[in-house]
Design a binder for these strands. Structure first.
Length: 292
DNA sequence: CCACTAACCTGTAGGC
DNA sequence: TGCCTACAGGTTAGTG
């Protein structure tokens, strides 16, 4: 499901409800997601107040009043949704009905002005995970991340230095979170199309002007996707249950056989498999390494 | 360090 | 309807 724009959409949807909310009760309906929940996970959360809803790369970060931060990754199918609830009737504490077998974590929250609510984390494939850390440098998940693509730290010079000598395809490098953080399979293909670079072009073969194009393409597609509330392919929902709509603006992703949308381009979108994942591109307007 | 594969897990779409 | 296969927004562990 979630690349940077989708995670940012979730963050923005959660923020007004969870910032300042007191964590009254936490229920785990299984001992693990992708990884086991940390020891004392529930005990460390109950009684805390959520100070903020933040994001780094594809991670949601919730700094807590006690000094620790809750980190949540949505994997492929993780989602958050709210369920209305009042603690005045404790018997109504939310428990997943038989059909809802993927409601793995229930947060009972009390917001000072919005009242009581339940925040439910569901994740069919359980590729998501959560952890608690005291300082960012203590989290193995945050340790090796590359720059945020919408920050000034992501630029052609930095990217060129990082890719120098690499012969793996540029598509794989964009998916490498150590090179740049937050891009996934959809936006890698979309950014490369905007930059007119073939996904199988060797990473180290891109000269500075083409790196500039790529940085611009990455930034542009991510900004537009965030503004559109992300992309909903099958099941992505924001925290309010709504779908994103950037999928209607894909240029190449999942458009094999369709005409290239680049003005005046006569190409047809192709699909190839790179490191086990689909890439989509136009063989006419996207170019490989330049022949100098 | 780099590059590649398999693995984790469930749901769904498409072919027959 | 059912069975089977392929594939899905991500990341890590293991191999060479």
């Amino acid at each position: 499901m979630p690349e940077l724009p989708e995670v940012e959409t979730v963050r923005a949807g959660l923020a007004p409800y969870v910032e300042g909310a007191h964590i009254h009760k936490v229920t785990l309906n299984r001992p693990n997601l992708r990884f086991a929940f940390p020891d004392d996970f529930v005990a460390q959360l109950e009684g805390q107040t959520i100070l903020k809803a933040a994001r780094r790369a594809k991670y949601l970060l919730f700094p807590l009043s006690g000094g620790k931060t809750l980190l949540s990754h949505l994997g492929m199918t993780g989602s958050y949704r709210f369920i209305e609830f009042s603690y005045k009737d404790p018997s109504r504490y939310y428990e997943p009905p038989p059909g809802e077998k993927h409601d793995h974590v229930i947060f009972g929250l009390r917001h000072p002005s919005l009242g009581d609510m339940h925040l439910v984390y569901a994740d069919a494939r359980r590729f998501g995970f959560m952890e608690l850390f005291l300082r960012e440098e203590d989290s193995p998940f945050l340790a090796d991340l590359g720059p945020e693509p919408l920050s000034n730290a992501f630029n052609a010079a930095q990217l060129g230095a990082r890719l120098a000598g690499r012969k793996s395809p540029i598509k794989a490098s964009l998916l490498d979170q150590r090179v740049v953080a937050g891009i996934g399979n959809i936006y890698a293909s979309e950014a490369l199309h905007r930059a007119h670079i073939r996904p199988d072009c060797p990473s180290g073969a891109l000269e500075p002007s083409r790196l500039e194009d790529l940085v611009f393409g990455v930034r542009q597609v991510l900004v537009e996707a965030v503004e559109a509330g992300g992309s909903t392919l099958r099941d992505f929902r924001n925290a309010e249950g709504g779908a994103g709509y950037f999928q209607h603006r894909f240029s190449v992703y999942d458009r094999e056989g369709e005409p290239c949308p680049t003005p005046l381009c006569t190409g047809t979108i192709e699909r190839i498999v790179q490191s086990g994942r689909s890439s989509f591109f136009c063989p006419v307007c996207q170019k490989g390494p330049s022949q100098a």
